[in-house]
């Protein structure tokens, strides 16, 4: 039976699979993410997190199964899905040779914002990300923490209802990471769904719910507190090792 999309679900995956030759990177993934949730998508390297995210963002076609993003099936509404998601990866996707303002202007432009809208939104985001002074700075000259916030700004430009963050805090110091998560809370408080992968277990603690992926399948799913209780784990680090290790 074909599952129906329910309103209120930001992301839904049903038997979503991806094979590369003989290797199954994502094995029949089932997942429901509520709108407005901060959902932590955890797993060891090679567990299939990035493959799953790439399918949900339309960067990779599934081998089998289906997924809905903001209620739209990704197989048939790829273009519409892309307008509804913001995406930020560890690599940030910024042009180092463009100025901060030019990066925002460019990305705003390709999402179809007109010049006036770009200008307004750009000012607002720079203010909020505490980057107003950096408007005319070459992006390549920014410290990593600033770049990271700018990359988040790029992902938020077109006010997407769902934000995919693929290891957004890699290589950034703890203070910058903390500040970044404050921003994520703000964004989520406004109703944006945040779908985030991370290797930092303290960050996993900040999520409303987490899933832990092992070898292409979800092995654990729930709130950090309930999962810790279920597995008798001291903290998220302990939980992760217990789930992944078994």
């Amino acid at each position: 039976m074909r599952p129906t999309t329910e309103s209120g679900l930001a992301v839904r995956a049903h038997h979503l699979s991806r094979r590369f030759g003989d290797f199954t990177a994502v094995d029949s993934l089932d997942l429901d993410v509520e709108a407005g949730e901060i959902f932590g998508f955890l797993g060891a390297n090679g567990a299939g997190k990035t493959t799953a995210i790439r399918m949900l963002c339309g960067l990779l076609a599934p081998s089998a199964g289906e997924a809905w993003v903001d209620g739209l099936p990704i197989s048939t509404h790829g273009e519409a899905v892309k307008r509804r998601i913001g995406y930020m990866s560890q690599r940030f996707g910024l042009y180092d040779d463009l100025r901060v303002g030019e990066n925002l202007e460019f990305y705003g432009g390709i999402y179809g914002l007109d010049s006036a809208a770009i200008k307004a939104r750009r000012g607002e985001l720079l203010e909020r990300l505490d980057l107003s002074q950096a408007l005319d700075r070459p992006t390549g000259s920014l410290p990593l923490g600033y770049k990271q916030r700018l990359a988040l700004g790029v992902a938020l430009l077109h006010r997407p209802p769902i934000l995919f963050l693929d290891e957004p805090t890699g290589g950034v110091d703890p203070v910058a990471r903390r500040a970044f998560w404050d921003l994520i809370y703000e964004v989520a408080a406004e109703g944006t769904t945040v779908f985030v992968t991370t290797h930092y277990m303290d960050e996993a603690e900040y999520c409303g719910r987490v899933s832990i992926m092992v070898a292409g399948r979800i092995q654990a799913l729930g709130t950090p507190a309930s999962l810790k209780a279920e597995h008798g784990a001291r903290d998220m680090q302990d939980l992760f090792l217990k789930v992944v290790g078994t």
Binding site: L59, K82, R91, G93, Y95, I110, Y111
Partner: peptide, 14 residues
């Protein structure tokens, strides 16, 4: 190489 292509590909650009 820079990863910006990926950022373009998740955008609605055809």
């Amino acid at each position: 190489e820079l990863g910006t292509l990926e950022q373009l590909l998740v955008s609605p650009l055809t």
